[in-house]
Write a protein that binds this DNA or RNA. Structure first.
Length: 132
RNA sequence: GGAGGAGGCUGGGUGAUCGCGGGCCUGGCAUCCGUGAAAACGGGUACGACAAGGCCUGAGGAAAGUCCGAACACCAUAGGGCUGGACGCUGGGUAACGCCCAGUGGGGGCGACCCCGAGGAUAGUGCCACAGAAAUGUAAACCGCCGCUUUGGUCGCUUUCCGGUCUUUCGGGACGGGAAGGUGAUUGAUGGUGCAAGGGUGCAACGGUGAGGUAAGAGCUCACCAGCGGCAGGGUGACCUGCCGGCUAGGUAAACCCCGUCCGGUGCAAGGCCAAAUAGGAGGGAAGCAGGGCAAUCGUCUGUGCGAACAGGCGGGAGUUCUGCACCGGCGGCCCGUCGGUCCCUCGGGUUGGCCGCUGGAGGUGUCUGGCAACAGACACCCAAGACAGAUGGUCACCGCUUUCAGGCAACUGAAAGAACAGAAUUCGGCUUACAGGUCGCCUCUUCUG
RNA sequence: GGCCCCAUCGUCUAGCGGCCUAGGACGCCGCCCUCUCACGGCGGUAACGGGGAUUCGAAUUCCCCUGGGGCUA
């Protein structure tokens, strides 16, 4: 699992229009061309002070890291933190993440149909992407 | 014991485990990076790059707000004037400051102690609403106070005259009344004068209190206080103390302003280097004048020559160069000055990579010396984050703290919950703001006991 | 990260330190006009971001917070 840094790649994830959300947390995701997962966690100024924002990033990142063996690989994820997350405890944040991952199909569920899920993935720019 | 005052320190700890940033070491290595499906191509390097392991190290007192001051970098080695801005008791500290220390003055508190943007209102200008007679002018007189002029009322005393009652020694006497006049007290009206003490208005009314003085009053006179000026003494100074003088000067400068001191601008996204990529595009402005030098070349004259031509003189001269002015641009808004220049500005187009700056510094800690202190000096020891979507966290256990509940007379035991403000971004010195607690001595007032 | 600016009724805005108990427009509410609606007329509702300081007096001047916005490779 590595970090997703470039603005162009992050914009690609947003353009895929695949997202699940709760009032406190939103997960945008798309499939990538690398075989590893790439993650970025965004916490804007409206979430709170730098202490609140950095704590949210660490907690989210730490849960993803510790539960990586259970996740499907080859995904780009953009986590967007919303102001409601400020008052949540660490265990609450973890359960929120788990439910979002399950909803997005990234969490390795008991019944696995990976091929079916990725079939309806929209290829951006009318299939102009090479290499897939 | 209670109530306070001022200041310093600290900002949970230990262990296990999984992770993150930086550095070093070890072993392995023709490897590493980019493009590519691969082959391959391009590039970097054996003081190298990558991955693994080990070790070391890794947020704050405010890292914050960005309110001041600097260092550093570029713009000229940061220049002059105007404008503008900041500061403002005194002395010291400091690289510097709007900060700190010590003092002065004022205000608050019984006190320890705390607070103060605290230069100039006699340099000038402005403003002081409403109310009030009057809001700064040696002004003004509403209610008032005083004597005086004119004119009344009441009362007292007195002179003259006229009656009355009683009495008589018939000379008168006593009592009371009326009229006219004089005089005094008091009171009213009127007029002009004197006064500013009192009332009233207001944030503020031209010193305050007391005594003398006066028709009533007034610094009119005196004492004390406050304020002003001068002199003397003390202090580096702010200022303090004493004496003398003339007796009066309102407030506001966080209103303009005056005085003194200081200030060029921009800010590490400063700035420098490397690599890569794109374009030579569009719009606008300016490419002017004068003089001098050189000069392709042209015209003309003279000379030589049969001639082509050559040489010399004169005149013009594309171009080029120099000087001055102008223009444009850089150096805060303007002027000067200065530097650069045929280009300058705006838009459009490309890149969104790497390295340096980047952490050893006005640095900390300790001791000694100087100083009331801030601080300075000497010596010794120490090196303590440097990221670039941005590193300190998760889980578990135990201990310590606080609260609640249960048990217990109590010491205590058990369970649950909680633990502030807050995260480095070029670096320092301050200020300001936020902050759960814990802890250390010092000081003041008060109560009780001995 | 650095450097700046702004804050007045629900909205857009006026507002020399005293006439501010803060004005106007659009809203909103009520009444009148009309057969009814619109237009029009009359009246009302409603604000100086918070705290401190200067001043006799502050929306206005000064300081500190709070909340918005902009510029900068």
């Amino acid at each position: 699992m590595e970090k997703l840094c470039k603005k162009v790649e992050i914009d690609t994830v947003f353009r895929s229009r695949k997202a699940v959300s709760t009032p406190a947390l939103t997960l945008h995701f798309s499939r990538n061309s690398v075989s590893r997962n790439r993650v970025v966690i965004m916490a804007g100024k409206k979430v709170g002070t730098s202490v609140v924002r950095n704590r949210a990033r660490r907690v989210i990142w730490e849960f993803l890291r510790s539960s990586e063996p259970l996740l499907r690989q080859g995904m780009d994820m953009v986590w967007v933190v919303r102001p409601e997350l400020g008052g949540k405890s660490n265990s609450e944040i973890r359960s929120l993440e788990e439910s979002l991952l399950k909803e997005a199909g990234i969490w390795a569920a008991p019944k696995e149909h990976p091929g079916e899920f990725f079939l309806d993935f929209p290829s951006p720019h009318g299939g102009a992407r090479g290499g897939t």
